[in-house]
Design a binder for these strands. Structure first.
Lengths: 190, 190
DNA sequence: ATACAAAACTAACAATCGTTAGTTTTGTGA
DNA sequence: TCACAAAACTAACGATTGTTAGTTTTGTAT
C-alpha cells in the first residue's frame, strides 16, 4: 500500500502550502517542487488540484461531524458537553492545524458538488451546536442571550484558534484548555 | 474630481469581488467586467492589481488604528473602553464588511512593503489591546486569565463578525451590540 | 468651435496555469 | 531473471493571467 502513503504525503504537503499561501496561490508545480518531483507526476496519485483540496477538507470536516454527534448523544450535563466540544476543537487544532486552515479559508474553491456537501455538513454541525445551546438556556445553565450570537462567538474563536496556536507554541496544554473554556463560557470579567 | 471618484468605485467593486472569491480568484478582467469596462482601462486609474488590494486594506486598517488610539487615550473605566472598542468593530463591520473580509483573508497577498507595514500596524493594534487587558487584570476588573487567550478570543470573534453579519441581516442593532458585549465580557454561563 | 484631459478602447506580449499523452525508471514478488 | 505495477519523467496543449503600448472616444471649460 505504498500508493496510499504517497497520496497522503501529497495531500499533507498541499495542506501545508495551501495554509501559507492559499489554494489559488499554490500551483501544481509549486506542490510538485515541494515534493521533489514534477507536476505531471502528481496525477499518478490524484485526479485534479481540486480533488486535493476536497481530500484535505473532508478529512477534518468528517472528524468534526463524528465528534459532535457522539458528544451530542452522551448523557452528561450541558456544560460538560460544551467543554468536551471545545476540547475537541483544541485537540484537532494541535494535530491538524494546516487542514483546519484550508477548511476555513479555501472551502470556497471546492468544486460545486464538494462545496454543496461541505456546506451541508457545516450547517448540520452548527445546528447540533445550536440545539445544545438552546437546551442550556432552557435548563438555566446558560444566560438567556441570543443563541446565534453565542454560537457565532464561540465558533469563531474555535475556528481560528489555529492562527493563535501558530504563534504561541503551546507551553502548557492543560492550562490553555482550561483558560479557553473559562473565557468562552464565563467570560473575562471578574 | 471625478478621477478620485472613479478610482474609489473600482476599489469598492474590487473589495466586493475579493470578498466573495478571494484576491487570486478574481482577475483584472473579472473586475473590469463588473465595472462595465475593459481590463486595460483600469490601469488609467490604478497602477497594479496589488495596489488595489493595498488601497482596500489600508483604508480600514488605518481606521482601526486611529480608533483604538483615541479610545486608549481617554480617561474612562477599563470596561467602558473595552465596550467602546467592541462597538467600534461592530460599526466598521456594518459599513465596510467587504473591506474587512479582504483585510482578514487577503493581506497575505500584499506586496512585500505593504505587507510589512500592515503587520506592523496589526501588531501595534494588538499591543494596545493587550495593554488594556493587563490594566484590567491589575485593577481586578478582569479575571486573572492568560491575557493572550483573552486577547485572541475577543479579537477572533470581532474579526470574523462580518461573516455572521452577512447571514443575519441585523434586525436590532442595539441588541446585537449589547449581547455581543455581554458574551465577550461576561461569557455565556449564567 | 477648439483645446485638453479623463477615460475608454484594441491588440498584443510573455508568463504561468491545470492538465494530458506517451515514455522511461524504479521497486517488488515470483 | 523476468514480469508487472508503481511512480517518476519529457513535452506539449489550450486557456488565462497581469500588464503595456498606442489609439480613440467622451466630457468640459474657454
Amino acid at each position: 500500500m505504498t500508493s496510499i502513503t504517497r497520496k497522503q504525503e501529497i495531500i499533507n504537503t498541499a495542506a501545508l502550502l495551501f495554509k501559507e499561501k492559499g489554494f489559488n496561490a499554490v500551483s501544481m508545480r509549486d506542490l510538485a517542487q515541494e515534493m521533489g518531483i514534477k507536476a505531471a507526476s502528481i496525477y499518478n496519485h490524484l485526479p485534479s488540484k481540486q480533488s486535493i483540496l476536497g481530500a484535505i477538507i473532508f478529512e477534518v470536516s468528517v472528524e468534526f461531524t463524528n465528534h459532535i454527534n457522539s458528544v451530542f448523544d452522551e448523557s452528561r450535563p450541558i456544560l460538560q458537553k460544551l467543554e468536551a466540544i471545545i476540547t475537541m476543537h483544541i485537540d484537532l487544532t494541535l494535530e491538524k492545524s494546516e487542514f483546519l486552515a484550508c477548511m476555513n479559508n479555501d472551502w470556497v474553491h471546492l468544486n460545486d458538488a464538494d462545496k454543496k456537501q461541505y456546506i451541508k455538513m457545516r450547517n448540520a454541525y452548527e445546528e447540533k451546536f445550536r440545539t445544545l445551546l438552546r437546551q442550556g438556556i432552557r435548563e438555566k445553565a446558560l444566560k438567556p442571550i441570543d443563541q446565534e450570537i453565542m454560537l457565532f462567538s464561540i465558533l469563531s474563536t474555535l475556528r481560528t484558534f489555529y492562527l493563535w496556536y501558530a504563534k504561541h507554541k503551546m507551553l502548557d496544554f492543560e492550562k490553555v484548555k482550561r483558560d479557553l473554556c473559562t473565557t468562552l463560557l464565563t467570560g473575562v470579567r471578574s
